[in-house]
Design a protein around this nucleic acid. Structure first.
Lengths: 148, 148
DNA sequence: CCTCCTATGTCAGCCTGCTGACATAGGAGG
DNA sequence: CCTCCTATGTCAGCAGGCTGACATAGGAGG
């Protein structure tokens, strides 16, 4: 229908290409997570808790790039499914430290394997060295953006 | 509150860092576009039409990484504001070729300048050569993902 | 010529994420 | 000690995006 050889200026924009790859990643992740009954946001939450047990709702939200309110809903769903536990009352401040249950850890392991495969597939056009450099350069941009 | 020096495994994931940068870009774009009364999706639509006049709803949706239904709503809003025009009836198939009005082109120019500045700022930690290589490598991944 | 098959535009309903607001807990500073 | 100030959790309301569905236009293939 369209001549794809005609390369517009948008393909010259780093931001557009970045969005393109991110969209591909999100779609691919959604496809492999759906059979496990997980959304991408829910998976992100589990992965964060797997690597940093005891994170609070707000802290999880920041690291998953969503608001506290959205993360709150994610946590509630996962808690209903028995994948994680939160104390009813805060021991010290108001922050409620969250932890994975056995079931949560099990689900996370399954999901993590699938997502890792997806990621590996997506970045397969690049060598290991290229992937590492890509990650470092993107991390530099992210760090600068936060500092700003 | 948290020791940021502690680097978890997630920061070793290209996908996570990619998401981080993309989230920063989206937030920054939203901030500069809001004063112009535009959402990120609306800007994307205008930019696509500026570079490829006559694109249909479905084609715009694909290139903006949303569904036809979502793009349809975006187009309707922009049309109400007089920023673009669509024929009431299709000349040939069912596709309705969309074009920017003078007002649309004007708004696009303003927005485009602002967004370009944001992008330049975000990727400023990288040299021109690094940015170019980054874009090419990401484009390679995107192309492979589509081919798959 | 007639029959699939695909692509497009559109409607309805749902879910998710965000903004705005509020109460509360802890710490900083006078 | 009392007063801001910040951070957190949570509730309510709203906008945006997605899935599912339908009708229609055009082309492919027998």
């Amino acid at each position: 229908m369209e001549q794809e050889e005609i390369v517009g200026d948008l393909d010259q924009s780093v931001g557009y290409v970045l969005k393109q790859v991110q969209a591909s990643l999100h779609t691919a992740m959604d496809e492999v997570l759906r059979p496990l009954g997980l959304t991408v946001a829910q998976y992100a939450c589990l992965e964060l808790l797997g690597q940093h047990p005891g994170l609070s709702n707000s802290e999880l939200a920041r690291r998953a790039f969503v608001t506290r309110q959205s993360m709150n809903l994610v946590l509630r769903r996962l808690q209903e499914r028995g994948l994680l536990t939160r104390p009813a009352h805060a021991a010290h401040g108001r922050a409620l430290p969250t932890e994975l249950t056995r079931a949560g850890q099990s689900t996370l392991r399954e999901a993590s394997v699938a997502v890792r495969a997806v990621e590996q597939q997506l970045f397969s056009p690049l060598s290991q060295a290229q992937q590492r450099r890509l990650r470092e350069e993107l991390a530099a941009c992210a760090a600068a953006a936060i500092a700003n």
